[in-house]
Design a binder for these strands. Structure first.
Lengths: 220, 220
DNA sequence: ATTCTATCCGCACTAATGTTCTAAAAGTAA
DNA sequence: TTACTTTTAGAACATTAGTGCGGATAGAAT
């Protein structure tokens, strides 16, 4: 198999992403901008090369006439192995101001409406009472979580000290993700970003909703 | 659900068939011919109706900017228990001051020494040139990455705009994770934490080492 | 019949988008 | 170096393909 140049790899991955996002292929100029290429002719040149190499199909004189070659004998450099996975429901999104989505008592028996996410069992554990939320906006930046991140949570009404959890401040009726420290009559909530200050509340003003198992941020 | 006219049904099924066959959507004129419609404006008219009805997505002023609305009630997926995974080598740790671990040319052929991490193939892709690093310390807090996080990277010497990457500032001989924006003669590096300021450098002072595919933070 | 609304026709207009050409730059081999 | 191939640039060009508009048609309601 012909080795792809850096630029060609970038073009390929751009096309993949673009189709993934829009359901239709990009134009030459879309690729040009997305890959910071100076001229449409360079894109055309490389698309032809990729076509010759069999990486993609191209129909000339057809706008957006691109499609990825069905991945055939290639791409198996590393043989994929099979691992056990757990399907975790994506219950919704969290954003500043919006109510914090929580699984209802009967949610677990009816996950039909929600999207499922496969996660390796090794990191989720048995997977009971585990669910995922997608973060919208930068409201959790204190917890080192940004827009688009996926937060994997496990329903719990108490957590051990130091654990990051979704906690509700009853008096404010706000919910945030903080590191939880029980200190007897008071409870200290500490942002994951240790450059920021912690706050303490009366313990009975703080309610633990779920503990945070993991954060998954996909950028590629 | 709104009932579709004869013509609209024909258009829908034509679009399905066309995409099935070509991997890209038809133009208005393709539809016109395929459905024996006398005028492009009639096609446009009905496409708008179909969009209103939620049957398909349409992007105006975009050629072939059509896609079928994802059919909701079908998607009868059974709960998967196994997924394909790719073993990714954990090459080491990154910490402030320490040199940035990079795969050597021959590293890929000898992964015996390094620990392997299984990640879902859907996330990593084919897995070529992908490796993982464990973060030590809070030096990457600007990138919303903290101590203990696992960073999944793919070796690349260039990335497209907006991508988070490991970049080296040659004049400083420092390496950081930043969002990369090529702006001709200069390159802008933007922290993931958008509350912080971006910096720009001469493009030839910036070297891309790897692109960041994902960040995995395990807290549980 | 009259009016109204939903559709359909043709056609011109223009924005979107692929192609081509020439030249320069970068890389390679002799 | 010189000669040769590959890749990049820039810009004009040509075709593709979406849009808009005046007017026709066809039912349906009044």
């Amino acid at each position: 198999m012909v080795k792809l140049s850096e630029r060609q790899q970038m073009i390929m991955s751009f096309i993949e992403d673009f189709i993934e996002e829009n359901d239709y292929p990009p134009t030459i100029r879309d690729i040009q901008n997305g890959c910071s290429i100076s001229s449409t002719s360079v894109v055309a040149y490389n698309l032809d090369k990729l076509k010759e190499g069999g990486q993609l199909n191209r129909h000339s004189e057809v706008s957006r006439g691109l499609s990825l070659a069905s991945v055939g004998p290639n791409s198996n450099k590393f043989k994929p192995t099979e691992i056990d996975s757990v399907a975790v429901p994506l219950l919704g999104t969290i954003a500043a101001g919006s109510p914090f989505p929580m699984p209802e008592n009967d949610t677990w028996s009816d996950l039909s409406g929600s999207e499922l996410i496969d996660l390796p069992q090794a990191i989720v554990g048995p997977g009971d009472n585990v669910y995922a939320l997608k973060v919208r906006g930068e409201s959790m930046i204190d917890a080192l979580i940004s827009d688009g991140d996926l937060v994997i949570m496990e329903q719990a009404s108490s957590v051990r000290n130091g654990q990051m959890a979704a906690v509700r401040i009853k008096s404010d009726n706000t919910t945030t993700l903080k590191n939880f420290y029980s200190e007897g009559p008071r409870t200290r909530l500490e942002p994951a970003n240790s450059q920021m200050d912690a706050m303490t509340f009366p313990s009975n003003d703080v309610e633990v909703l779920s503990k945070v198992l993991a954060v998954w941020r996909y950028l590629g």
